[in-house]
C-alpha cells in the first residue's frame, strides 16, 4: 500500500463522519417526546377530540394552520368546517390554544425533538410563563 500515512487517516475521518449518528448517541437515553394533553380545558371534555382526527393533526396540523392563516387574513373567512361537519373558528389563540394551553408540554416537545421552529409567535402572543 502506498501513501498509507495520508490514506489511512483520511479513511478514519471518513468513517468517523459517516457514523456520527451512531457514536454520538452512545450512552444517551433515547428521549421520545410525549406531548401532554392534560390541560383543564381538555379534561372537561366528554369526548376528547381535536378539530380533525389524531393522525391528521399529527401529520398535517402545520399545513392546516397555515391554511387557516391565509383564509382569515387574506380572504376574511373565519369559520372552518371539519370532516365531522362542525363549524370551528379559525384562530390559533382562541381555538388551538384554548385547549392546548400547555405550549411547553405540548407544542414544544415534538418541535424541539425534530428541530422545527415555527414562527407562530413572531405575531401571536404566546401563553404566559413560558420563556421563548
Amino acid at each position: 500500500m502506498y501513501d498509507s500515512d495520508k490514506i489511512i487517516p483520511g479513511l478514519i475521518i471518513f468513517v468517523g463522519l459517516m457514523t456520527f449518528p451512531i457514536w454520538s448517541s452512545i450512552g444517551k437515553a433515547e428521549p421520545k417526546p410525549e406531548p401532554k394533553i392534560d390541560t383543564p380545558a381538555i379534561n372537561q371534555m366528554v369526548k376528547k377530540q381535536c378539530v380533525e382526527d389524531t393522525h391528521f393533526m399529527k401529520t398535517s396540523h402545520m399545513q392546516m394552520i397555515n391554511d387557516w392563516r391565509d383564509k382569515v387574513l387574506r380572504d376574511g373567512e373565519r369559520y372552518y368546517t371539519n370532516s365531522r361537519g362542525e363549524k370551528v373558528m379559525m384562530s390559533l389563540q382562541n381555538t388551538c390554544m384554548k385547549c392546548h394551553s400547555n405550549k411547553d408540554k405540548f407544542c414544544d416537545t415534538c418541535h424541539t425533538y425534530t428541530d422545527v421552529k415555527p414562527y407562530c409567535w413572531d405575531c401571536h402572543i404566546q401563553p404566559k410563563g413560558i420563556k421563548q
Binding site: P21, S25, Y113, T114
Partner: peptide, 19 residues
C-alpha cells in the same frame, strides 16, 4: 403525503442506537 415525523425520528434514532 404527510408522514408522522416524530415516529420517523424515533425509528432513525433507534437505528443509530442499534435497538
Amino acid at each position: 403525503f404527510r408522514v408522522d415525523i416524530v415516529g420517523i425520528k424515533t425509528l432513525l434514532v433507534s437505528l443509530a442506537n442499534f435497538s
